[in-house]
Design a protein around this nucleic acid. Sequence first.
RNA 1: GUGGCUGUAGCUCAAUCGGUUAGAGCGCCGGACUGUGGCUCCGGAGGUCGGGGGUUCAAGUCCCCUCAGCCACCCCA
Length: 437
Amino acid sequence: MQVKALPGFREFYPPDAALRNHIFSAWRTVATRYGFEEYDGPPLEPLELYTQKSGPEIVSQLFEFIDKGDRHVALRPEMTPTLARMVTARAPALKKPIRWFSIPQLFRYEKQQKGRLREHFQLNMDLIGEPGPLADAEIIAAAIDIQRALGLGTGDVRVRVSDRRLLTALIEAAGFPEDRVSIAYEAIDKIERVPREELLRRLREAVPAGGNPAAAERVLALAEVRGRGSLDQALGRHPEAAPASEELIEAIDALDSMGLGEFIEIDLSIVRGLAYYTGIVFELFDAQRSLRAICGGGRYDGLLKALGGVDLPAVGFGMGDVVLGELLKSRSAAGEALRRLDAFLVAVTVEDRPTVLALAHALRDRGLSIEFALKEQAVARQLRIAASRPAKRAVVIGPDERKQGAAVVRDMSTGTEERVPVATLADYLAGGTAGDA
RNA sequence: GUGGCUGUAGCUCAAUCGGUUAGAGCGCCGGACUGUGGCUCCGGAGGUCGGGGGUUCAAGUCCCCUCAGCCACCCCA
């Protein structure tokens, strides 16, 4: 039995690698379009880098070990601590706001499921040094434009947006104890997974005797706020929370102005598990809601400082390649990256081979993608290979052609042939319109 | 980490009540076809039926263990 790949680790056969490159290319294109610069860091880091942020519980979910120098190390499960360290180290010299992106391969030791492996690539885009809601809007817009660049529209993906400042204000306005907000967060986060009665029970338990008896119901009602009208109603019931809605409204208005409003839904049930988010939080989903989140992010103004770094506000997101790839495959928007040769060179006889080799090399030097038969084969066989590559054209070189200093160029999709002088062959192949060239 | 479902060729699947040498389509390789592909026809390679153990005259089929995948939980990238 051959040794298999480890569970949760992928092998990329050429079609898979093509899809991955397609996704990476969209990531880089859009990030660059938004003025973001690429960075990278070490894939292996000291374990403390992660425990200081997430606590010792994180260790069970990491690929971690003791190296030969007795260092406790971990394969990186996320990019943010590395980013924080890099930004902090050069913070005084970096022009603000900092717009950086990276495409790290990340690792987690968890039981795998569909869309969730032990390894994945994740686009990280972060905008550091700008506290205002236009920065949030930029980040969300970039996440959406990546979907658009991949051919996905409002019928395919949606963004659900909330704001922790607003949600906290509403929870408190609902009469829920201020020191128990995290319990309210947890209940709201689980609104789609845990029965309503169970959540109510947990919330009631958190309200002390003598507290507001209606608080639990009101908190749960917040989790059902969807859309602007619904938010306005909630703010009508709790007017003291209204000032906390300003940033969210401003960011959404900005996205409207960009023409991306159709993608956006206010959804106060979006909490995000991570404790360090301080403002706007958002998630990107497929419209059918049949897959896991494509992308999640938000504002984390206190995190860099908490990690022992500079005190700069920040907003960003992570977008994995796994769910996105599944969505593209299900939408059959994945296959455009099909490889095509510019030409397949056919040698009619062995005596034609030196000419074919010389020609192949000259054409490759011109940047054309060229193949030829690696052994003596019938012309019919060589053409069959050319068709299956697939090649846009076949270039046939036989004794007659050599005498004339020409080649027969066959368009493989139409079957039409043309006699082309060898001297102009490269231009002919490069400039032609055969197939979908 | 917990629980449930599923594992037959590269892919999608079939194989009667437990019965003889596990099949098909697609794909792959070759031939019909020694200067013209796609169509057609013919042939071939490819399986330790996920792995191990057990029951039985006999196991792809039944039982146990294990591994892997999928689903839910946990957690979230």
